[in-house]
Computed example of a mutant assay.
Amino acid sequence: MLLSFVANWSVVLLCVGLKLPQILSVVRGGSAKGLSTYTGIAMIYCYSIGTVYGYVNDFPIKNYIEATLLLIQEIILFWLTCSIQGQRSLSTLIPAAGLYGVLMSALLSNIFPAFVLDALVFAVTPISAVGKMTQSFKIFKEGESGNLSATTWGLLAYGCLVRFCTSLFEVKSMILAFNYGLSLLQNGLVLAQIQYYKKWPRQKKRTF
C-alpha cells in the first residue's frame, strides 16, 4: 500500500512539470526540430479522453489527474510547435480551440450514452500508437532527434509504468492497463532513439 501510494503521487508530482523540459528545449533553441505536430494532436486526444474517462467514472482523482496536467502542457507545447514551424495560423487555431472546448464540455457533462465514451477510450490505443509511431519514424527519417527532450520522454515512460500497474491492480481496468502498457513500450522506443541519435547522429549526404 505504501509503495502504491508513493508511486501514485510521484507520478502526479512529476506530471506538474513533465513536459516542461521539452517546452524549455523548444523555447531556448528557438526551434521545434524533431517534434511531430501529428504526435501532438494524438497526445491531446489521448490525454483529453483519459481525463474525461476518469472523471465520468468517478475514479480516484490521483488515478487520472496526471492526464489533465499533461493535457494542459501538451496544448502549450503544440501551440509553440505550430507557431515556430509556421504550420498553423491563429485564424485556424482559435476556431479549433473553440470546437475542442465545446466537445470537452459535452463529454465531461456525460450527456452521451456510455458506449460513446467506451468507443473513444478504445480509440486511444490506435491513435496513441499511430501518433508515437509518427514521432519515431520522424526521428528515424531525419537521422537525428533535434530538440526532443530525453528527460520528458523518460518521465513519460516512468508514468506509464506506474499507471499500468495501478490500472491493473487498483482500478482493475483492462482497457486502461492495455493502453498504458502499449504507451510504455512506445515511449521507451522514442527515448532509446533520442539517446542513440544524440550520440550517433546520422551523417547527411552532401549535395553538390
Rank of each mutant, 00 (worst) to 15 (best):
S25T: 09
S183R: 09
A192G: 09
F208L: 12
T81L: 13
L161E: 07
L161H: 03
L161M: 14
S167I: 02
S136W: 11
S183F: 07
E144I: 08
Y64G: 11
Y158G: 05
S136A: 15
K132Q: 12
I61M: 08
K132N: 05
F137A: 14
L69S: 07
C46F: 15
Y45D: 07
V116T: 12
L182P: 05
Y64A: 04
L107F: 08
L189S: 12
T207Y: 11
A42N: 00
F137C: 09
G181E: 01
I75Y: 14
F112H: 04
N179W: 07
N187K: 01
I75F: 12
L156W: 13
Y180L: 00
S31Q: 08
L103T: 10
N187C: 13
F5N: 12
G17Q: 06
Y64D: 03
P113S: 02
I41M: 07
P60N: 08
W79G: 05
S48C: 02
T39N: 15
L3K: 15
T151A: 12
N110C: 06
Q193I: 06
T134K: 14
G40N: 12
Y158C: 11
R163T: 08
V162I: 15
V130I: 15
N8W: 05
F59P: 02
S183E: 12
L99I: 15
F169C: 06
Y53R: 07
I84G: 01
V26Q: 00
T151W: 13
A114R: 14
G181H: 01
Q73A: 10
R88D: 00
L185G: 06
P60D: 00
V16D: 08
L2K: 13
F208R: 13
L189R: 14
S31G: 00
I175P: 04
V16P: 04
M43W: 13
L24R: 14
L191H: 00
S48K: 12
S149F: 10
I139A: 08
C160V: 01
F208T: 14
L80V: 10
V27P: 04
N179T: 14
